[in-house]
Simulated scan of single mutants.
Amino acid sequence: MSNLQLRNPVRGFLVSVGLDPEILVQFQYNPDKVTDKRSVSYATLNAPGMLMPVRQYSAGGERTLSFTVVVDGLFKGPADDEIDVARDERGGIGPELNKYRAFVHPRTERWQDANGAPDGFTGLYAGAETVFAAPPTCRFGFGERVVDCVVTEVSITEQLYNPDLDPIRAEVQVTLAELTPYNPDPAAGGAI
């Protein structure tokens, strides 16, 4: 065997920034593709007698990354000696799926309390001021690519259930938006 075959595969991850306890998702199976999309805005300038309008660059648009990962409670992933999928007491992968959900709910240090709660995340905010807090910022790592971002969308498709109807396999689609790499003046309406 070569050294390459003995080595554990590198796993992608998503981790919260500045939240205690942190939300850490290490991908059991790396996505088979990552879509990296960037847009820019151009203003259309029209003038009488012009054959075609002129385009004037007006602003950079956001960079979004999207991918789909599989979470499987039945089989170990290629690096399962280091990475374990979070499961509940009945073997369901709900706690692992809630890690992804925590990235799109208002920021709270109690995010783990959503596991097993009948109302999920909703009950965490009853009477709390954090309802209006932004979801946590995060860092996406995939090989050499490390991007500070916010999760803008999570879509979970449950695919397999145990006898108690707890999900044991799911596909998770994630969309991220890169945070601006510079720090604009917040007094002038700058963003996070």
Rank of each mutant, 00 (worst) to 15 (best):
M1D: 11
V10A: 09
S16W: 03
V17S: 10
L19K: 02
L19W: 05
D20Q: 08
V25Y: 04
Y29G: 03
N30L: 05
V34N: 05
K37I: 12
K37E: 15
A43S: 14
T44D: 08
L45Q: 12
P48I: 10
P48H: 10
L51V: 12
L51C: 08
M52G: 06
V54S: 09
Q56H: 11
A59S: 15
A59N: 09
G60C: 07
G60L: 12
G61E: 08
R63D: 01
T64G: 07
L65H: 04
S66D: 11
S66Q: 14
T68Q: 13
T68L: 06
V71N: 01
G73K: 06
G73H: 06
L74N: 12
P78L: 07
A79F: 07
E82Q: 12
D84I: 11
R87Y: 03
D88E: 05
R90I: 07
G91C: 14
G92L: 11
I93Y: 11
G94K: 12
N98A: 02
Y100A: 07
R101G: 03
H105K: 09
H105Q: 14
P106G: 00
Q112F: 07
D113Q: 15
A114I: 09
P118V: 07
G120N: 03
L124A: 04
L124M: 02
Y125E: 06
A128E: 15
T130Q: 14
V131R: 13
A133E: 15
A133C: 07
A133K: 14
A133H: 13
F140H: 10
E144G: 09
E144H: 12
R145E: 12
R145I: 08
V146H: 14
V146Q: 13
V147F: 05
D148N: 09
T152M: 04
Q159T: 11
L160Q: 13
P167Q: 01
R169Y: 02
A170N: 05
V172Y: 04
T175E: 10
L176P: 03
T180R: 10
P181S: 14
Y182P: 00
Y182G: 09
A187V: 11
G189Y: 00
G189H: 00
G190Q: 02
G190W: 07
A191W: 12
A191F: 12
I192Q: 14
I192S: 13
